[in-house]
Design a binder for these strands. Sequence first.
RNA 1: GCCUCGAUGGCGGAAUUGGUAGACGCGCUGGAUUCAAAAUCCAGUUCUUUCGGGAGUGCGGGUUCGAUUCCCGCUCGAGGUACCA
Length: 984
Amino acid sequence: MEYNFREIEANWQQYWADNQTFKAENNSDKPKFYVLDMFPYPSGAGLHVGHPLGYIASDIYARYKRHKGFNVLHPQGYDSFGLPAEQYAIQTGQHPAITTEANIKTYRRQLDKIGFSFDWSREVRTSDPNYYKWTQWIFTLLFNSWYNKTSDKAEDIESLIAIFSSEGNKNINAVSDDDIEIFTAKDWKNYSEEEQQKILLQYRLTYLSETEVNWCPDLGTVLANDEIVNGVSERGGHTVIRKKMMQWSMRITAYAQRLLEGLHKIDWPQPLKDSQTNWIGRSEGAMVTFKVDGHEESIDVFTTRPDTIFGVSFMTLAPEHELVSKITTDAQKEAVEAYIKKTAKRSELERMADVKTISGVFTGAYAIHPFSGEKVQIWIGDYVLAGYGTGAVMSVPCGDQRDYDFAKHFNIEIPNIFENVDISEEAYADKENTVITNSDFLNGLPYKKAMKRIIYEIEQRGFGYGKINYRLRDAVFSRQRYWGEPFPVYYKNGLPQMIATQYLPIVLPKVEKYLPTEDGKPPLGNALTWAWDTIKNEVVSNELINNETIFPLELNTMPGWAGSSSYFNRYMDANNPDEFVSKEAVNYWRDVDLYIGGSEHATGHLLYSRFWQKFLFDKGILPVDEYAKKLINQGMITGTSAFVYRWEFGEGNNSEMAKKTIFVSKNLMDNIIRERRVIEKEGKNVKVDPSDLLKQTKVLEAQKNSKWSHFTPIHVDVSLVNASDELDIDAFKKWRPEFSDAEFILEEGKYIVGREIEKMSKSKYNVVNPDQICEEYGADSLRLFEMFLGPLEQSKPWKTSGISGVYSFLKKLWKLYITNGAFFVSEDKPTKEELKTLHKTIKKVEEDIANFSFNTSVSTFMIAVNELTALKCNKRAILEPLTIIIEPYAPHIAEELWKRLGHTESISTVDFPIFNPEYLIESTKEYPISFNGKMRFKLEFPMDMDKDAIEKAVMAHERTQAQLQGRIPKKVIVVPGKIVNIVG
RNA sequence: GCCUCGAUGGCGGAAUUGGUAGACGCGCUGGAUUCAAAAUCCAGUUCUUUCGGGAGUGCGGGUUCGAUUCCCGCUCGAGGUACCA
């Protein structure tokens, strides 16, 4: 009776599917537990062994929770809109929906093989109209909302309109566009519908605005920052220019503070929280207005150090600042324009790379210091960024290193306003231990007091106000792509109108070509049926557009993060056609208890989804404003690449030899290189013959007098290498026919490859497919091995050879239930020792699961099985609980054993065995006896022996005396139950 | 530069509040079984040693009876972020 994993796994996977074993109920008396994975983008390459790591961990957790009596929701789906499918469509004309469908099939087949306990009845696909209907619905909701800072939440736009018509916008405390004009209730009523809509757009949580984008005219598309390399497009190397485009944005900045505060109440990894905190970038300071001498205009600056305002000796504007052209004097005009031209040419990347070069130009104009009334020069410099703050800074060279460097470079005065601080070499930026001086009413004040006082003064005298600034920008929500959610938006007189939600979804139209149109419109510009009929309420042919009842639809699509920002809520009620999620479902499931996924989403998906959650919470649709209580970032699994080393001959002396391809085994190569180093060090001729090392091959005999230069490592497919790093040469030659005539210089009859850890990738031939592993060792082995590799959160290398360990563990486990070739368990009472093994395993595994330390559980199982094997234990009272505790990790074998133990129902919801500490109580302890902290030998004493008795016994022992060699110990430390330490 | 995380045998890693460093597995060595191989089983495997022992968790200090664990200073590596006023 062998452990036939192929049969067992296929049977149980079928059983689970047929019986919907893992279907979660929305009505249950059991407590809920929601375990979520970040859903995958179904790429054409399929899964490699790195992908399922997090899924296996979450599956173990989900299965464990079922044993603990929870109603577990463990769904899965696909983030199926995305660029690769679109690019494939551009190249082949194949509709992305077809490619996506095929890829999803592959993913599903691969996932099913690993034996996950997903509730597939709740599957979502972001590209499915039945799903993106709700993405469009949320978009509409955002459009119809504004952010009321007074109530600190999103409110219906109707409430804003009501305020406008009763009192205008004078007292509105809202998050809005910056440049809003004040109007009265009377004004509002007199505005045309169009004017009113324009004003409302400045307050809506999603709004249209002119945004700068990276436009690539040759590709006819907008590029993301990471698609631009050295100022040109990554694909094709075309020029990229900054262009303003009308785009949808999301007013995420309204939630900056709440996004920051929310981090305190969720159990997410600290590095992830830190990067969100940095991304939001809160800084406290003040807005201060500086008048420009001889001009109407003034310059607003944001500063985090208003306490250093008396240290201002100049101002710096970003070259793009709108005031520059107005205030520059004639004398400086030429220099300023030349400078602006020069900086405009430099890409952001260049500017970034070149931090050390200090550049700038004096505008000729002066600002008036609001407190001292002194004139300070106004410069422009590209170290000031147009996109941050106001694009202008008050420069305090004594307190800011960049200002300091700038001042030094241009010989600008550096007044010192810090008591007893030397600023002759560098600026002094420390806030804590400073006392302000040379600063009028701030003299003698430390940082904190100075801050309070100066903000008070600024506000009193009307020069500005205290302000909290965020680095976080509103998120651009338009993409000039085809394969994304269409907006439920049509345009009337250039103003956006929402399509009423009962007509959603607005389905992605068919297009002939997936590229932008010739006149630079997004791909949807190719659609012929893409107009909205406001009478029939349906999408109709473009030809019918009359701009009276039939209007053009939005041509942009939504970005990748749209569909993933609330998918976890949809899982709760995935098949509900009438609601995003029913009250009943969402009040039962509420939030995710455990979310597992990669850290690469730290500031994208994981920030935007928190924003949408808070918004939907404000709207009363969701009961909680943070959706995931606990989050874990699983580490990457890297590949262990294998290399052969081709010997490259220098100077084509021996032409016949030079033509040959010779591969040298790893350690021989190392020897040759070492040898050469020695030779070179000794100053001898580099040409020295290494044939001593290589006598074994006749090839090298001929090579005796030739020069030899170096070795080129060439990637070998990892499947051609065995556990001892030995290359299967025949298979290698078959794989790379161009090397079929190559010579191999062996060591001890083997070709040993080199190994290196790299990212798993096709081009490095180190990708390992989980299907292969399941085929060869089974899904249970794969699951155990992925966990056994190391801590979940760390990145770790994959080496298939190690899997034999967990595989033989499963075979050993199986054998416990077999006697004389047949399945048999005894009904005898278990011994003390057997119970001890069982219960320490239960204890350890439960602790491990609580700590997400799955790797140590696998070790624990191995130890248990080793011990039970040694005890020849085949008792039901031990093996039955053992089967249950192993089930979350290796569910197929557990189900099979459970059935053979005589059960007719699936093991999946059987109660987890209860740990009983009584079985672990020991009567004696083997004390480590250490000398000065070093353990030298062990002595066994009864557990209840007291301190003094232990000390006496230890001191009397001959080994203690031998160790002391007549010395008298200074001190003897006895910690009962732990250790004895003798000092001296 | 800043923030975060990490560094333990040939390799992956273990050591729950400071208390026996190297669990478990891979690989390797030797043995059993076999016509042989696979599979399986047994023993050994940090380094060093004059076989008594000695040293040892990236490096240098410190606290402690005792430090992989705590503190200070560094080196190296990974990830994030960046002229952020």
